[in-house]
Design a protein around this nucleic acid. Structure first.
Length: 340
DNA sequence: AAGAAACACAACCGCGAATGA
DNA sequence: CTCATTCGCGGTTGTGTTTCT
C-alpha cells in the first residue's frame, strides 16, 4: 500500500511540458501504447515521472479530447450528474465524450459552482441554501417584483401562485414517499422503516401524485425562481399560507442556464423517470434543454423500482442526507389538508 | 500605463483501491 | 494473507492571462 514513490524521485523534471516533450510522449504512445506508465518515461526518453506522463496524456495529449468551451448541453449534463454523483469527476466524465475529469472539475470549480451559489443554491447539495447568503438571490428577485406586477394584476397573480404552491406541496409529499430512508409516516403508514413494507403505501400514493402532477410542466410559472418570488409576494398577501417547506425539495433538478449572467434563475423541476439510459445510471437524464415531464405515468411496479433507484442514487452521492423534509410541518399545514 | 485583482487551467500531491508476487 | 507496486481519483496549487481600478 502507500503512495507511489515515483514523484519523490529527484532529478525528474516538473512543471509545464515543452512541445518537444509532448511530441516524444505522443510518438511513443502512438507507436507502443502506454503500457506501464512507470516504465514509459525511460523508454520514451523523457525525464519525467510516469505519473506526470499519464496526466499529460490523459488530460491534454489524447487525440480524442474535445477542446474549447462547454456547450449548454454539456453544462446541463454536468449539473444533473453532479446532483446525483457529487464530485465523482471521472464518473461524470464518462458521460461527456471527449472531456476529461480534470477539465470538468476545473469547469465546475470556476464556473458552475459560482453560478449555483449566485442562484442561491448550495453547490454541494444542489438545494436552496439556508444560510444568510441564500436570501440574496431572493432579494434580487423581490427587487424585480414591481416589474412583474406591472404585467399581471395582483389578484390574478396570487390565484395562480396558490395553485402552484399546492402543486409544490404535492411534489414535496411525493418526495417524501420516494425517500427509502424516510421515517415511517407516523399514523399514516406502517411503523416499519423497511422499504418493502412501506412500499405498498408509497406506491399508491406516489402513483396518484405523479398522475396529478403530470400537468405541472404546463403551469404558467415553471421555474422555482419565479415560484420563490411568487411565494414571497403571496406571503405578504395571504399570511395563512406557509411556504416554509418549499426550499426542501430534493427531487433531482434539471438546471437551466440563465440566458445571461445578470438574470438569476433557479432550476426547473423535473420528475425523473427510469429509462433506457446507460445501465450505469439509474436516471434517465433529460436529453434536451427543454425537458418534459414523464408522458406516461409509471405503473405501480415501476414506481417501486424508481424508489429503489432513488435509494441507489442517494447512496452513490457523496454527501450525507440532511433532514430532507419537515414531514410533520407538511401534515400540519392547512394547505396540505386541502390537497390531500 | 501600471499595478492589483480575478480568472482559467495545467500540473502536482497525496490518498486509497487494485493487483500481483 | 501480507506487502510492495502501480494506477486512478479528487483536492489543491502555481502560473499565465485578462480585466479592473
Amino acid at each position: 500500500m502507500g503512495r507511489s514513490p515515483c514523484c519523490d524521485e529527484s532529478g525528474l523534471k516538473k512543471g509545464p511540458w515543452t512541445p518537444e516533450e509532448d511530441q516524444k510522449l505522443v510518438k511513443y504512445i502512438q507507436k507502443h501504447g502506454h503500457g506501464s506508465w512507470r516504465a514509459l518515461p525511460k523508454l520514451a526518453g523523457l525525464n519525467r515521472c510516469g505519473k506526470s506522463c499519464r496526466l499529460r496524456w490523459t488530460n491534454y495529449l489524447r487525440p480524442d479530447i474535445k477542446r474549447g468551451k462547454f456547450s449548454q448541453e454539456e453544462e446541463q449534463t454536468i449539473l444533473n450528474l453532479h446532483s446525483v454523483l457529487g464530485n465523482k469527476w471521472s464518473a461524470i466524465a464518462t458521460h461527456l465524450p471527449g472531456r476529461t475529469d480534470n477539465e470538468i472539475k476545473n469547469f465546475w470549480n470556476t464556473h458552475l459552482k459560482k453560478k449555483l451559489i449566485q442562484m442561491g443554491f448550495d453547490p454541494m447539495t444542489h438545494r436552496p441554501r439556508t444560510d444568510i447568503f441564500s436570501s440574496l438571490p431572493h432579494l434580487i428577485a423581490l427587487a424585480n417584483l414591481k416589474e412583474l406586477m406591472d404585467h399581471h394584476s395582483l389578484e390574478e397573480h396570487a390565484l395562480r401562485l396558490q395553485t402552484e404552491a399546492a402543486q409544490m406541496a404535492k411534489l414535496q409529499y411525493l418526495q417524501y414517499l420516494l425517500q427509502p430512508q424516510a421515517p415511517a409516516a407516523s399514523n399514516m403508514a406502517t411503523s416499519s422503516n423497511n422499504l418493502n413494507t412501506i412500499g405498498t403505501f408509497s406506491d399508491m400514493e406516489a402513483f396518484n401524485l405523479l398522475n396529478s402532477l403530470s400537468s405541472i410542466k404546463d403551469s404558467p410559472v415553471s421555474s422555482l425562481s419565479q415560484l420563490d418570488l411568487s411565494a414571497s409576494s403571496l406571503q405578504g398577501i395571504n399570511d395563512s399560507i406557509s411556504f416554509s417547506h418549499l426550499p426542501d425539495l430534493q427531487i433531482p433538478c434539471n438546471y437551466q442556464t440563465p440566458p445571461n449572467k445578470d438574470m438569476v434563475q433557479a432550476p426547473e423541476l423535473t420528475v425523473f423517470s427510469q429509462g433506457e439510459d446507460s445501465p450505469n445510471s439509474p436516471w434517465q437524464l433529460p436529453s434536451s434543454s427543454t425537458p418534459s415531464p414523464p408522458s406516461v405515468v409509471p405503473p405501480v411496479a415501476q414506481t417501486s423500482s424508481m424508489i429503489n433507484n432513488l435509494g441507489d442514487a442517494s447512496s452513490a452521492s457523496s454527501y450525507g442526507g440532511e433532514a430532507p423534509l419537515a414531514w410533520h410541518d407538511l401534515l400540519e399545514d392547512p394547505l396540505f389538508h386541502d390537497i390531500a
